[in-house]
């Protein structure tokens, strides 16, 4: 018979603690009302779920090993986006296409990422399948946080980190092509500062490394004739700052992305289409490979189907315009942020 450390009998004269025999004659003291757990005394924490409760479907509850006894824990990570250093490690393993998603506060950056992830919860999306992510729980946390209970618009958990972080997402196409994406997860404040004149290499060093850059424009701003001009002007300034010498290298793709398209009426959309063409042309004048994409990642109106996410994904996973032969390494750049180069792309 096994001993039963961690249990004590409260009945006078019971030899259970000495030899494991229950005075009531119950094997292992099973069901004895006089037994109690020492651990429970020390820590009033509840017993593990399943103890004594019928389990769903009537299966026997997991008895389980008590792993709480002075066993140091190992942190698993995954509940948040990754640091640039951790992104280095991911890229070294899988290769990476780094995508800078630049937009001001509330422009829709996090919603765009969360809804892109959510498409894979229903099955392959736009001929791409989920192949893995070290940020799976981070993505789900951001998405599921917005799935909260109650009617009304869901609240998105905005990026709060003060440092640049990345979301890792690996995909497999129906044709067998694999891509490993590192999508930026940065506060809009960094972007605002660049628009207002802060040095790009200090505020958005990722721009230098980014294989692709998406400039997000808030559809809610475009919807109002009082704010739309400013929104486009600020986007133009941002594109200019991004493409200044020392910024986004020549020939890299840059997309002007309208977020929250569902907020914009047809008149506003016509106006923006013309303006977006000019922004794209401006980006191309500055050496980038420009394009425009309109998205409504989480439309309010029925049937609540995302629009333009497939176009966004197609742009993100498009083959690089020129052959890349570099692997990520970390070096210091301004304010100790990472600067990356690719020298190997095992996932491509």
């Amino acid at each position: 018979m096994s001993t039963t450390p961690g249990l004590v009998c409260e009945q006078d004269g019971c030899p259970f603690a000495d030899n494991g025999r229950c005075l009531e004659g119950l094997p292992n003291g099973e069901g004895c009302p006089h037994l109690r757990s020492l651990a429970a005394d020390e820590d009033a924490a509840a017993a593990p779920p399943g103890n004594g409760e019928p389990q769903p479907g009537g299966e026997i509850a997991d008895a389980g090993v008590d792993t709480s006894e002075l066993d140091p824990t190992v942190e698993l990570g995954g509940e948040d986006s990754v640091t640039l250093a951790a992104g280095d490690a991911i890229a070294a393993r899988f290769g990476a296409t780094v995508v800078l998603i630049a937009g001001e506060h509330n422009a829709g950056k996090t919603t765009l990422l969360a809804e892109l992830y959510a498409q894979f919860l229903k099955g392959p999306f736009a001929s791409w399948s989920y192949a893995g992510s070290e940020c799976l729980i981070a993505l789900d946390r951001r998405y599921q946080g917005a799935r909260g209970v109650g009617p009304g618009p869901p609240e998105i958990e905005h990026t709060a980190d003060e440092e640049m972080r990345l979301i890792d997402l690996r995909l497999l196409s129906a044709s067998g092509r694999r891509v490993s994406l590192l999508l930026s997860d940065i506060k809009g404040e960094f972007v605002r500062q660049v628009i207002d004149g802060a040095p790009l290499r200090e505020e958005l060093p990722l721009a230098v490394r980014a294989d692709r850059t998406a400039v997000l424009i808030d559809g809610e701003k475009i919807a109002s004739m009082y704010t739309r001009q400013e929104a486009v002007t600020r986007a133009r300034v941002l594109i200019g700052a991004l493409t200044d010498p020392g910024g986004v290298p020549d020939g890299r793709p840059l997309a002007v992305i309208l977020a929250k398209k569902d907020k914009v009426d047809s008149e506003g959309l016509d106006w923006f289409t013309a303006e977006a063409d000019q922004l794209r042309a401006f980006a191309e004048e500055r050496g980038a490979r420009g394009t425009t994409v309109n998205t409504a990642a989480r439309p309010d109106n029925a049937p609540h189907r995302p629009e333009g996410l497939d176009d966004f994904l197609a742009w993100v996973v498009a083959p690089a315009p020129e052959a890349e032969t570099l692997v990520l390494t970390t070096a210091l750049l301004g304010r100790e942020r990472s600067f990356w180069r690719l020298h190997e792309r095992p996932y491509e």
């Binding site: 593990p48 997991d62 389980g64 090993v65 792993t67 140091p72 190992v74």
Partner: peptide, 23 residues
């Protein structure tokens, strides 16, 4: 086949840690 508590796995999913023995 160790019979680890289901709570171990719940904590891994929600709190992002597990005991070193599970590691």
């Amino acid at each position: 086949i160790p019979d680890l508590s289901g709570e171990t796995w719940r904590e891994a999913a929600t709190d992002r840690h597990w005991p070193s023995r599970v590691e």
